[in-house]
Design a protein around this nucleic acid. Sequence first.
DNA 1: CTGTTCTGCTTACC
DNA 2: ACTGGTAAGCAGAACTT
Length: 836
Amino acid sequence: MESTLKGKEQVKLDFIPLDFDYLDLDGKCHIRMFGRTSENKRCCVLDTTDAYFWLFPRAGIDLKKYAEKVAKISLEHASRIAKVEKVEIKDKHFLGNPIKALQVFVSNPKDIAVIKDIAKTFHETLEKKETDINFVTRYIIDKNVKPLEWVHVEGRELNQYIEVPFDVDTDIVVMADEIKPTQEHELKLNFLAFDIESTEFEIGKGEIVMISLADHNFHKVLTWKKYSNAPEEVEFVKDEAELIEKFMKIIHERKPDFLVGYFSDGFDLPYLRARAEQNHIKLDLGLDKSNLSFSRGIMPSAKITGRVHIDLYRFVNNIFAYTLQSPTISLNDVAKELIGEEKLEIDLGHITKELRSTHGKIKDAEMRRFSLYNLQDAVLTSKLFLKLWNNLAELTKVVSEPLFEVSRARYAYLVENNILHNLKRFNEIAASRPLGEEIGERREREKYIGAFVKEPRPDVYEKVAVFDFRSFWPSIIVSFNISMPTLLEKKESGGYETPEFEFDGKKRKFYFQKQEGFIPRILKELLEKRKETKAEFKRNPSPVLEAKDYALKTLANATYGYFGFFGARYYSPECGASITAISRYYIHKTIDEIEKFGFEVIYSDTDSVMFALGNKTEKDAKEILEKINKTLPGTMELELENFYVRGIFVMTKKGETGAKKKYALLAKDGNIKIRGFEAVRRDRCDLAKETQDVVLKKVLEEGKADNALAYVIKILKEVREKKAPIEKLIIRTKLKKAIESYEARGPHVVVAEKMLEQGLPVKAGSLIEYVIAKGNSKERIRERAKLPDEVEKGGYDIDYYIEHQIVPAVETIFAVFGITKEQIIEGKKQKNLGEF
DNA sequence: CTGTTCTGCTTACC
DNA sequence: ACTGGTAAGCAGAACTT
């Protein structure tokens, strides 16, 4: 439907939508998009689409009469008339089944909530649907205008203030008459990364001292704290008020499409808002001079009209962290891993303390360093944005939700929206989001049986082969047509069935329909797209294709977990349990086949099988792989992961069984793959981790343990002689929740309390560092846990580090070679005797 | 009072 | 509150005799 707003001239342009919102114009709700034209002009495009929801009628009622009744709904709401515009009877599908439904068109999407409440009171109404679809999502789906996908727009240029009641800072404002997908143009990334420094951590306390801004060629530091010999990027201002004004001025002048921060939802922007309020400054950062606004919720999102505010921390935390090795997702660790650069080192505690005090003294050199530190944070954020841009963009394109949402989304949101944005072509009405009560029940539900993990026999194995299933969960979902809408009560001819397994305490089997369901279909297309992307990448490698593959892989892998997620529209623990039951069946079958062939299967976890070649060859292994693949259904496929020179599996610490999820393999190229061992865990001190790492390397490379034992004895001797550096003895544990909510007061909780007392910033998510200092060994460990700074050289608890850190990390490895814990420790005693 | 078992917690694997 | 289940192992709490 066309807008009544007239406008002056007809215009045609190609446009890429970056940011979306909606507002009432001329009595009608319009979508407002901000983006760039193919000529790199800043552009605002207005458009409209129908606002509607669905009603399902009870059986046997007169549809026409029902429709007429619904069409009469009208009430006063939010000082306007909320009413139903029209009602149409449509043939639709719901959960794959045909259904007659009323499409209820309303005058304004904001009125859907009140109108559906009235319609629900009608006895004819069975259910309401799609009342929880955001209007922007509705627009994207119905008008086929997707975020970051170029469209051709034909429409009328509007005069701001005259025809529209707003003034946005763009080169052109267009009311679209026609809008359709078009060929791709280049998008020049126009962004600005920023970082603020304050005297306090807590929002509402202290003040802003400094703000840095950066992109690929612009570096700027603003501060009111004057000092001489400042770097050229530094600009001094009068006070905090001028600092904030200047920051806004730069943004309005440079007109970034993307404003990028690191933890800016959680700190920089809330802090900035608090200080702007205190200084009576309007934070009109929006393209329409509107204020910075925050969404409600546990983790507020800071929104700026017309510019996409991206908090990279959230993207890294929610999505990208799984791809990283970084011990934490701090800017420093993430930047180090992704761009090979780190934050500058400064004594921030000292500087902020001096700045807080009225008589505080800071040397010019220190302020200079502080400015460079602040700038470096903005620069790292800017580089990280460029590094992660392709990932963000490709994920946005696959999911079809706006970049602002996708950059803050978690896996469930991505999977669900990918489904929602594909429903139209199946003529499907979306299932509803669960309500509070339902969520509660789902969360309390007992869990279903997961994947199979085989107990390994502890030993050192020569010539190890590893097979694994390619995209195991997605391939099962697709091959067995698994999803909530395709789940059947009874077996259907030509349909699919699971093996028998225990579910909710009963022996059960689940069945899935023969006709392909829309969710398995969408997933299948995702996998096919991934295959194409990979093939294309082979021909023509590019970071964009790599990012696209990453987006497709991420979504495909998260689909299984989505089925069991309590907040899912298409929630189905039956499906989750069916997928794992099928996985167990096929992994067992694979193990059996390999054993039947005469190999010793060492270990298996979920989708992988490891076995020793023994006196057989790699060719034999490949042969059986091919044989197994011929028996697999659908798209399921077993792949050769690699052949390894040697591998080690150990006992659990209790010494009764072989430890699962703990092993190390030596590849032919000399690389060692370590899984589960303390060496790869964060909550062990570096000395224990490094010692274990060396021990694993030595035993795998040499096939025996004598050199490794000598090495450990040497390390233990150094520890006894107080020669171990404190940095290597720091234990790092994450505080996963607020301090008050801990029942058990472990060492890290006690240290966190101590840090809080000292005014250090500790909250849920903080990584707590501590060292166990010497003291009364009868006391609890937490009594001896101290902040690293509090422990002087050699002041650590020798026995703790030997008995609780180093020896436990290596004893199970030596046990494989028949070396006991006593022998490891006695070695130390012998050396000591030799010294006297 | 002391040793054992249970529970809470964190972090890994897939 | 924000994808699932499986598993190891530490430290403290609870329990037992």
